[in-house]
């Protein structure tokens, strides 16, 4: 199976990837299927830009799945070619959770900065939690003399 120039996948590879991705991540309740958010389109390109090490195993997975029922192909990869399945599943899930739409549905803002008051009195100092720890006394053994 040939690929298009540069790092991009061919249209055929993208179709196969979309089918496999929907086996791994189908639509479920409020969550969309992988292909519905473009996992096999711009998101997989984003993944491979950051994880080029996945490319070889991913392309092998796509080649092995060509012309096959995607559910059967995914299970066959799991049983017979773990590196290919692992690359496929990480690339697909990594792409899916990069999707802004998916993050919004999950309520995940990303690893954002949060402001706080470092001088505020923590609740554990006033609700009795630390007091109970202190009341139980030391838990270390001192240096023997």
């Amino acid at each position: 199976m040939s690929e298009t120039a540069g790092s991009s996948l061919s249209a055929e590879q993208r179709n196969i990837l979309g089918s496999l991705a929907d086996v791994l991540i189908p639509a479920y309740q409020r969550m969309p299927a992988a292909s519905a958010v473009g996992v096999h389109e711009s998101l997989i390109d984003e993944v491979l830009k950051h994880r080029s090490d996945l490319r070889e195993d991913l392309l092998r997975a796509l080649a092995k799945a060509k012309g096959r029922n995607p559910t059967e192909a995914a299970n066959e990869l799991l049983r017979s070619d773990a590196p290919a399945f692992n690359a496929l599943s990480l690339a697909v899930s990594g792409a899916y959770y990069l999707s802004p739409a998916v993050r919004k549905l999950l309520g995940y803002p990303g690893q954002e900065a949060v402001s706080y008051d470092p001088h505020a009195t923590p609740d554990y100092l006033t609700n009795g939690m630390i007091e109970r720890v202190l009341a139980r006394g030391r838990v270390y053994r001192p240096t023997p003399r």
């Binding site: 791994l24 991540i25 189908p26 479920y28 969550m31 995914a74």
Partner: peptide, 11 residues
């Protein structure tokens, strides 16, 4: 099999 950790189970 794939369905144990993926598919709807992943969600």
């Amino acid at each position: 099999n794939v369905e144990e950790s993926w598919g709807e189970n992943l969600h």
